[in-house]
Structure formats: structure tokens, C-alpha cells
Simulated assay, not measured.
Amino acid sequence: MDHMSSNLEDYLEVIFSLESVNSEARAKDIADAMGVQRASVTNALQKLSQRGLINYQPYSSVTLTPEGFRTATRIVHRHKVLYDFLHTFLQIRPEVAEDTACKLEHHIDDESLETLTKFARFIMTCPRTGKDWLEAFTRSCNERGTCTNCSECIKSCLERQDDKCPGSSEPSSKTS
């Protein structure tokens, strides 16, 4: 199948969302969700129907075909991964992360998305990173606007890590 425009992907994403809540999507609901006129919705629905992604007849509800469901699921997944990374890891405000994820989801390739997913998983599971690491980033970098005193943060983190180290009867001594 040839490349689908960002606009059509957005329609498919909205149809997916409406169908998951209501078991169907109506043109009026799609127009409301996207903030567009019904005529624009009709044109997009015709294009999606021609591609075999939706079941559509004028004045009827819209449902995804199996291929439309697979395509919409991929789009929604890309959006979620990007939003989660922007908001959770980079601490970008939710509304900005949402807007940016919407823009990026149409252009990120599968290899980059998979690598980003692996990186996020690594950050959350590696004992050298994880939740403490994210909290330190938030405190040190985001709250002050710049990350200027990393040595103090690293020293504190290493002390906490030594305290957690199995087999150690006491925290190791540090030299400055």
C-alpha cells in the first residue's frame, strides 16, 4: 500500500478511538473530535474506504476493516511510545508532549521507534538508571532549567548505590 498522508492517519486514529469506545464512529463525532467540517470528514472517509481501511457508506456509521484496525493500532502505538518518552523521560508538559507526539508519529520509521522503545525499557530496568535516574534528571535538570551541577548529583547517586550494594556490610568510603 502506498504512503498515507498524516491527515488520513489522524482520521484513522480518531476512528480507532471512537470505535473502541462506541463500537462505531459517526461522521459527526469524527468532525467534532478533529475540529473540522463534515465535508472534510466525508472526503477523508471516502479515501480511507477506497484504501480498504474502513467500512463506510454515506449516512451510516464507520468501522475499521481488519487492515484498518492493524494500521490504526500501529499509529496509536507510535503515538503512545512517543508521548510516553516525551512526557515521562524528557519531562515535557503533557499538552506539549501530546502535540509533539502527534507530529512525530507520522514521520518516525519502524527501526527508530523500536530503538526508542528499547532505550526507554533500558532506562526503566537497568540498575544504573531507572526511577532514581529519572527523578535526578527532573530535580537537577528540569527544575533549575539547566543541568550545571552534575558532579554533586553523581556523588549523591553513587552514595545511594553503595548503600544498596549487596554483600557490603557498610557503605564504602569516598575520596573527594
Rank of each mutant, 00 (worst) to 15 (best):
R26Y: 02
Q50P: 09
H79W: 12
V21K: 14
I54F: 06
E24M: 05
L64T: 06
N43F: 14
K47I: 12
P58V: 10
R78P: 11
N43Y: 14
Q50M: 13
N43P: 06
Y56I: 03
Q46D: 13
L45A: 07
N43H: 15
A39F: 14
A27Y: 00
H77C: 07
S23G: 06
S60K: 13
R26N: 01
G68R: 03
L82W: 11
F16W: 11
Q57M: 08
R26T: 02
I75V: 15
A25V: 02
R38E: 14
R38W: 07
M34Y: 05
S60D: 12
K80H: 14
E24A: 06
P58D: 07
R70S: 10
D32R: 02
D84C: 08
Y59L: 07
L18K: 04
K28P: 00
S20P: 06
L18E: 01
H77Y: 15
E19V: 09
V36D: 00
Y56P: 05
E67F: 04
Q37C: 04
A33K: 06
M34I: 02
R26M: 01
F16L: 05
A44Y: 10
Q57C: 03
P66A: 00
S17C: 02
S61N: 10
G35F: 03
V81H: 12
T73F: 15
M34L: 14
N22C: 01
V62H: 00
G35I: 02
T71L: 15
L48Y: 09
A39L: 13
T71E: 15
S49W: 14
V76T: 13
L53D: 04
K47C: 06
S60M: 10
A33I: 01
